Amino acid sequence: MEIIMSILSGILFTTGIYNLLQKQLLRIIIGTALISHGAHLFILTMGKLKRGAPPILEYDISQYTDPLPQALILTSIVISFGVTSLLLVLAYRVSKRNETDNMDLLRGNENE
C-alpha cells in the first residue's frame, strides 16, 4: 500500500510542477494545490500506513496508531487552503485589473 501511495504522490508532484510551468495564473494555482496534496500523501506514507486502535491507553490493546502524521496533515490542509484562497483572490484581482491572466503579458515590456 505504501508503494501505491508513493507512486500517487509522485504523480501529484509531477502534474503540480507541470502546471506551475504554465503561463495561465489559474493553472499555476492548481499546480500549487496539487503539490500540497502530494505533500499530504507523502507525509501520510512516511508515517507508515498502520492499522490499529486509537492512541488511548487500554490494557487489552497492543498496537496503536501514531497520531502525529494525521495532526501534521490536518495542519497542512488548513495552511494550504489559506494559501490557495489567497492566490485565487490575487489572481482574480490581477486578471480584472490587467484584463489578462497570461504571465507573459503581465510581465510587461522593457521598452515601454
Results as ranks from 00 to 15, higher is better:
2 E>L: 09
4 I>C: 07
5 M>S: 09
6 S>C: 03
8 L>Q: 06
8 L>D: 02
10 G>H: 01
13 F>G: 11
13 F>A: 13
13 F>H: 02
15 T>F: 09
15 T>E: 06
17 I>G: 01
17 I>Q: 01
17 I>W: 05
17 I>V: 13
18 Y>S: 06
18 Y>Q: 05
20 L>I: 12
22 Q>K: 14
24 Q>V: 02
25 L>H: 03
25 L>D: 00
25 L>G: 00
30 I>G: 00
30 I>Y: 09
32 T>I: 14
34 L>D: 11
34 L>P: 05
35 I>K: 05
38 G>R: 10
41 L>N: 15
42 F>A: 14
43 I>P: 12
44 L>V: 10
45 T>F: 05
46 M>E: 13
47 G>M: 12
47 G>L: 08
48 K>V: 03
50 K>I: 12
50 K>C: 00
51 R>E: 15
52 G>N: 09
52 G>P: 13
52 G>W: 14
54 P>W: 13
56 I>L: 15
58 E>A: 11
58 E>V: 14
60 D>F: 01
60 D>T: 07
60 D>N: 15
61 I>L: 12
62 S>C: 02
62 S>L: 15
65 T>E: 11
67 P>E: 01
69 P>V: 02
70 Q>C: 03
70 Q>N: 08
71 A>H: 05
72 L>E: 08
74 L>F: 10
76 S>G: 07
76 S>F: 04
80 S>W: 07
82 G>E: 03
85 S>K: 07
88 L>N: 05
88 L>Y: 13
93 R>M: 03
93 R>K: 14
94 V>L: 15
95 S>L: 02
96 K>G: 00
97 R>M: 04
97 R>Y: 13
98 N>H: 12
99 E>M: 09
100 T>A: 00
100 T>R: 00
101 D>Q: 04
101 D>R: 00
105 L>E: 15
107 R>D: 03
107 R>F: 10
108 G>Q: 07
